[in-house]
Every structure is written in C-alpha cells, then in structure tokens.
Amino acid sequence: MITLNNLDTKFKYEVAEEPGGENIKLCFACGLCTAGCPVSEIDPEYNPRRIIHMVLLGMREEVLSSNLIWLCSLCYTCQAHCPQNVNFADVMKALRNMAVREGYVHPSFANRIKDIDTFSQRLRHQMVSSVVDRKSEEMELEPAKLAEEALKGLKTKV
C-alpha cells in the first residue's frame, strides 16, 4: 500500500523545471509511449507511462534510485508520437541529470554509462554499416554473429 501523504508532491514541479521535463504534467496516460517502446518490448518492467505516473504522484525516491531510468535508449519513438508532447526521452534525460546531481548514483557510474553509451552507439553503427554494405546481396545474418564480428573491430578502440 502506498500512502499518498508520504510522497513528495513537489517532485513533478522540480522535474518540470529541469531542462527536458517541461511538459511532464501534460501526460494523460494513454500508453502510446510504452506501446511503441523498443526497450519495453524486451523488458516489460520498463514502462514509460508508469514512470511518468510515478513522477506525477511524487515517488521521488523510487524513481531517482530506480535502475529503470537508465534503460532508455533515446530512440525518440515515444517523443515523435506522444499526443500531448510530453517529450518522454527528454524527461528521461532530466531524471538522469537529477539522479546524478542528487547523489542517487556514484559519479563513476555516470562515467561508465557514458562509456557504454558511446560503445553501444559505435557497435550499432558498425553492425548497421556491415548490413548496409551488403544490402544488395541475398543474406542470412544472425544478429549475435554480427555483433561478434563488429566487436572484434571495436575491442582495440574502447
């Protein structure tokens, strides 16, 4: 049972003040963000609509300390289709900034995340490039094998 009185009612205003969080209060919980989210598809625990709702209710501790806010891949699908222009990918950035600033994560964690981000972007680029290079050929490519191949080239760089 969650007691509403124990929650931080100012949290949503703080998020709205943070760059990226401006439109959070406009959410009418239609779930379009979640329905189109590629991360939710892999990990149903990750639910953008639910995260927004937690912010609006004032569940500060739960949101900022949660591992979930680090899962967004910033693909902007939610942002492109949101009927209320909540700009959820930007909200995610705002929440991450707040979590780092308020000490919910160790600074080294943020650096590590940044490294992973750069690394995975490069990996994605390599994988897509190798597919694009061969797009005119008939091909059966296993994503796992492709990653292995791409990683060979990356290992020395990271």
Partner: peptide, 9 residues
Amino acid sequence: VEDTLLGSV
C-alpha cells in the same frame, strides 16, 4: 497497444 489498466503491451 499498451493496455494501461493491465500495464502490459
């Protein structure tokens, strides 16, 4: 679609 009452896509 996300059935928001179920919380699942």
